[in-house]
Design a protein around this nucleic acid. Structure first.
Length: 985
RNA sequence: GCCCAGAUGGCGGAACUGGUAGACGCGUCAGACUCAAAAUCUGGUAUUCGCAAGGAUGUGCAGGUUCGAUUCCUGUUCUGGGCACCA
């Protein structure tokens, strides 16, 4: 009886589906456990082997927790709004809903193949009106709320209105611009009131810059802009200000930081988030500008260095630039500003080249009256701080390089701590050349300066955040419409009863006028004065984990009772690429919903595990580049493309066997040209991607390659051993071409490809489809192999070859139960101590590995255990069935099949996880490694309870130790009980 | 440029708290079974010197701490991820 994985997997998947074994109740006496995968976008390319990695890991853990007696929620759904579907619609005229639906179906079919334990009754799709109704509803809650800074939480906007009616803006001042008394508030007209409230709402409307492409008439995403031009068509892209919605996430900055201390994210992840939030303590200082009444306000974290300021750098888009540019600098400034407009923020920050332009204006140092030139440069961004910095070249590397580049004299305020070669960012130097700060340690001077500027009224201490409010609108079609109506320039929320505001049908997916989204093309939509922007991709994904709990509720986004039962996601698995986007936004939404009393927890994810990326292992072939000269007419296009193996390419490049290659090329050419009247020169090789599915290991399947594209039909190959293979030889005298290496049959005729590890993508022809592997080896093998590749958190290249080993393991496991010839071999005999020991040693490690998400070592422990049981010829049911339960999370199908064949009733999915009988694991002695000076030389078996004097005696008596001692006494003997012995000579 | 992570045999990786580097698997070599192949099984396989016994070297690179470092510290190189409209 052999292991017929296809039948087995199909059978059990059907039974599990029929019996609804993965259906999860919302109330249970069992403790709850919530395992979540990051929301997938159903892309048109379908799944490749990299996608399911995290799903398999979470599936194993979810199944493991279930066996351990938990009520496990493990849902799946689709983040179905997004740019790719819209782009596809523009190009092919297919409605995004249609292509998305198709993609989802493919996605689902592929997932089902792998045997996941998702409760599909809880599936959600963000593009489904029954889902986005609640996305819109939450948006309205955010719109109708403000952040009360004294209570440090979101509260209803009506609360704020009451506050204004009683106290005016006194307690809730946001900017100096809107300061008013209660009386004044009451006298304001509605539009003014609404304008003021907009400065407080958690979801608010403002103006922001976008990548505007005039030629395409549309706004582009950052990754659609390459080197300042559009990816499609190469048209120029400039910054354009557009009305945009924002989420006031900055108000949550401190709580987002504080919350990190209460959740189990990796330190790296927490660091990335806190760097993104970028809290810094500094000061805002106003500098007078010579000849103007305006002040230049800078933000600095180092007010102590104020006497070292040698120039100012202002963002090129700073509002003062136009005003203060002067004289001969006007033209230069304008030119520079135009240049910067064409640059993306990314390019500006990554630029190594130092650029900038003097404005012609001077600021005045408030303490010593020194005149400081004001420059503009792209490395200062308008959105951060005040958009202007005071540059201290002796203390800041970037300022230093800037000063050097533009020959700006550098003032040294830290004496010997500055060597003139590079800036020194120390806070511990003693200040010099610093007026009233002279002799002070910098660290202490910070507070002194802060007090001084506040006293002088030219500045104040300021906590700053690098994080900006999140842009929450897109000029796109395929997203959630905003439930907002504009009346005379004022935004009004639609009543909740009118939700969902359905996404209308459009004739064309192209952009609307003036950079507006496609919705602006719909007369009825515009007539109703509805908002024409749509929400961004992260809207739906910021709260989906809550909807899974209560997916069919049409009264609420999620009932409080249900969210109180499930609470936080206990385990969240997904990639680091979401580190600062999705993870921060969903944390903010959770906090807002918590503040408003809709849920009972303020951090969505208790523990986060980051999965690494599976990279593609690309394969390359090398086409010969020839320069052929002949006196006769040659039809060059009739010549076949010649592909040279990697081995030959490498040898050519180091000048080895060059004559052999030239010979072969000559041979090929004369065969095809039917004469020898030509000369040629080998100019090199051009490499290009070949589909990995046509390559076994590194060996190219010649016939598959010839059939790949018409131009390769007649391809000629030069193999590793310099044999040649051309269509002419095939049809004619086959042996003729095989000259070199003919005698060496073992080398064969192999074409070795080149390899490189790259991102897995269709365009690189290195994607591997899980369907093919599941079909060939089964889901259980596929699942275990994905895990066996390496640690979940780590990125690693895919290599299909290794899957055989895991498949062999499952067959070997099967043979513990059933032999191909003998049939049933399992029995009901009593197990002996050696068998129990092997089992429990393995199960103990497997449990530990599963608990710490070390699934790769878990799989290898299964292999060791099965190897040991095979060696022990153990076919005993009482041992094997415990193994099966432990295997269930990893390979559920084979486990269920064997479980039922052993005569068990009921599913193995709900069996009790085996407890470890530690009595079989007790050891009395250990094979101690004996080191001499830290180098392992031998091992000695010593009783585990032996104490140091006894051990020393045994060790010193050992021949090997004696040899190394050469009669001398050891200086020291280090003995670590249960670990090792080190003899120091 | 800034932030984060990683680097160990031919390959994926193991070594969990500073204590036997290379578990497990792939590949490969040799052998068994077979008319043959597949499947399966057995054994070898970091490099290097040596017939062997046994040495030497070895965890990206350069230093340091320690009786002992893949593990800790400093510096450095390369690779991957993120940098706010891909999701």
């Amino acid at each position: 009886m052999e292991y017929k994985f296809r039948d087995i997997e199909k059978k059990w998947q059907q039974q599990w589906k029929d019996k609804k074994v993965y259906s999860v109740p919302n109330d249970s006496s069992k403790p709850k456990y919530y395992v979540l995968d990051m929301f997938p976008y159903p892309s048109g390319a379908g799944l490749h082997v990299g996608h399911p990695l995290g799903y398999i890991a979470s599936d194993i853990y979810a199944r493991y927790k279930r066996l351990k007696g938990f009520n496990v929620l493990h849902p799946m759904g689709y983040d179905a709004f997004g740019l790719p579907a819209e782009q596809y619609a523009i190009e092919h005229g297919i409605h995004p809903a249609v292509s998305t639906e198709n993609n989802i179906n493919t996605f689902r079919r592929q997932l089902d193949n792998i045997g996941f334990c998702f409760d599909w009754d809880r599936e959600v799709r963000t593009c489904d009106p029954s889902y986005y109704k609640w996305t819109q509803w939450i948006f309205l809650q955010l719109f109708n709320s403000y952040y009360n800074r004294s209570t440090q939480k979101a509260e209803s906007i009506t609360q704020l209105i009451k506050e204004f009616e009683t106290n005016g803006s006194a307690n809730e001042q946001r900017s100096t611009a809107n300061s008013f008394t209660a009386q004044e508030w009451k006298s304001f007209d509605e539009a003014t009131k609404q304008n003021i409230l907009m400065d407080y709402r958690l979801a608010y409307c403002g103006y922001g810059e976008v990548n505007w492409c005039e030629a395409l008439g549309t706004v582009l995403a950052n990754d659609e802009v390459v080197n300042g031009v559009s990816e499609r068509g190469g048209h120029p892209v400039v910054k354009k200000k557009l009305r945009q919605w924002y989420l006031r996430i900055t108000e949550y900055a401190d709580r987002l930081l504080e919350g990190l201390e209460r959740i189990e994210f990796s330190e790296a992840m927490k660091e990335m988030q806190s760097n993104w939030i970028g809290k810094s303590y500094g000061a805002e200082i106003d500098f007078a500008i010579k000849g103007f009444n305006d002040k230049l306000r800078v933000y600095t974290t180092r007010p102590d260095t104020i006497f070292g300021v040698d120039f100012m750098v202002v963002a090129p888009e700073h509002e003062l630039v136009d005003k203060i540019k002067s004289g001969s600098q006007v033209a230069a400034v304008d030119e520079y500003v135009t240049y910067v407009k064409s640059r993306s923020e990314r390019e500006r920050m990554a630029e190594k080249k130092i650029t900038g332009c003097f404005t012609g204006a001077y600021a005045v140092n408030p303490f010593d009256g020194r005149e400081i030139p004001i420059w503009i440069s792209e490395y200062v961004l308008a959105g951060y701080g005040t958009g202007a910095i005071m540059a201290v070249p002796c203390g800041d590397e970037r300022d230093f390089k800037f000063a050097k580049h533009f020959n700006i004299p550098i003032t040294n305020i830290i004496g010997a701590a500055f060597n003139g070669e590079e800036a020194n960012a120390t806070k511990d130097a003693i200040l010099e050349n610093s007026g009233f700060l002279n002799g002070m340690v910098m660290r202490e001077a910070i507070e002194v300066v802060n007090n001084k500027i506040e006293e002088m009224g030219i500045g104040k201490k300021k906590v700053n955040y690098k994080m900006r409010d999140a842009a929450f609108s897109r000029q796109r079609y395929w997203g959630e419409p905003f439930p907002i109506q504009w009346k005379n320039g004022t935004a009004w929320p639609l009543p909740e009863t009118e939700l969902p505001l359905l996404l209308p049908e459009v004739d064309s997916y192209s952009p609307g006028p003036e950079g507006e989204g496609p919705l602006a093309n719909i007369p009825e939509w515009v007539a109703k004065e509805l908002e024409t922007n749509t929400m961004p991709g992260y809207a739906g994904s910021s709260w989906y984990f809550l909807r899974y709990m209560d997916p069919h509720n049409d009264k609420e986004f999620c009932s409080r009772k249900v969210s109180d039962y499930w609470g936080q996601v206990d385990l969240y698995i997904g990639g680091t690429e979401h580190a600062v986007g999705h993870l921060l936004y969903s944390r903010m939404w959770t906090k807002a919903l918590y503040d408003l009393g809709y849920i009972g927890h303020d951090e969505p994810y208790k523990k986060l595990v980051n999965q690494g990326m599976i990279q593609g292992s690309s394969r390359f072939v090398y086409r010969l580049k020839l320069d052929i000269m002949s006196e006769e007419q040659i039809a060059l296009d009739k010549l076949p493309q010649i592909f040279v193996s990697k081995v030959v390419v490498d040898e050519w490049n180091i000048g080895f066997k060059s004559e052999d290659l030239i010979d072969k090329v000559k041979r090929i050419l004369s065969l095809h040209l039917s004469h020898d009247n030509f000369k040629f020169k080998i100019e090199g090789f051009s490499s290009f991607h070949v589909d990995v599915n046509m390559v076994d290991g590194i060996e190219l399947d010649i016939n598959a390659f010839r059939g790949w594209k018409p131009e390769f039909e007649n391809a000629t190959f030069i193999f590793d051993d310099y044999r040649i293979d051309t269509i002419l030889l095939k049809s004619g005298n086959n042996s003729e071409g095989f000259v070199v290496g003919e005698e060496n049959d073992k080398m064969g005729t192999k074409y070795s490809t080149g390899t490189e590890v790259e991102k897995m993508s269709k365009s690189k022809f290195n994607t591997v489809n899980p369907d093919d592997l599941v079909n060939k080896y089964g889901a259980d093998t596929f699942r275990m192999y994905e895990m066996f590749l390496g640690p979940v958190e780590m990125s690693k290249p895919w290599d299909t070859k290794g899957i055989e080993g895991v498949h062999r393991f499952l067959k070997k496991l099967w043979r513990l139960f059933y032999d191909d010839l003998k049939g049933k071999v399992w029995n009901e005999e009593k197990a002996n101590d050696a068998e129990w020991k092997a089992l429990y040693k393995g199960l103990k490690k497997i449990e530990e590995d599963t608990e710490r998400f070390s699934f790769n070592t878990g799989v290898s422990t299964f292999m060791i255990l099965v190897n040991e049981l095979s060696d022990l010829k153990c076919h005993k049911k009482e041992v094997l069935e415990k193994l099966l339960i432990a295997l269930t999370p990893y390979a559920p199908h084979i486990a269920e099949e064997l479980w039922s064949l052993l005569g068990n009733s009921g599913t193995v999915l709900d069996a009790a996880y085996p407890a470890i009988e530690t009595k079989y694991l007790v050891e009395s002695s250990k094979e101690y490694p004996i080191s001499i000076n830290g180098k392992m030389r031998t091992t000695i078996n010593i009783a585990l309870d032996a104490a140091q004097p006894e051990v020393e005696q045994i060790v010193l008596a050992n021949d090997v130790v004696q040899k190394w001692l050469e009669g001398k006494a050891p200086k020291k003997i280090i003995f670590v009980k249960g670990k090792m012995v080190n003899v120091v000579i």
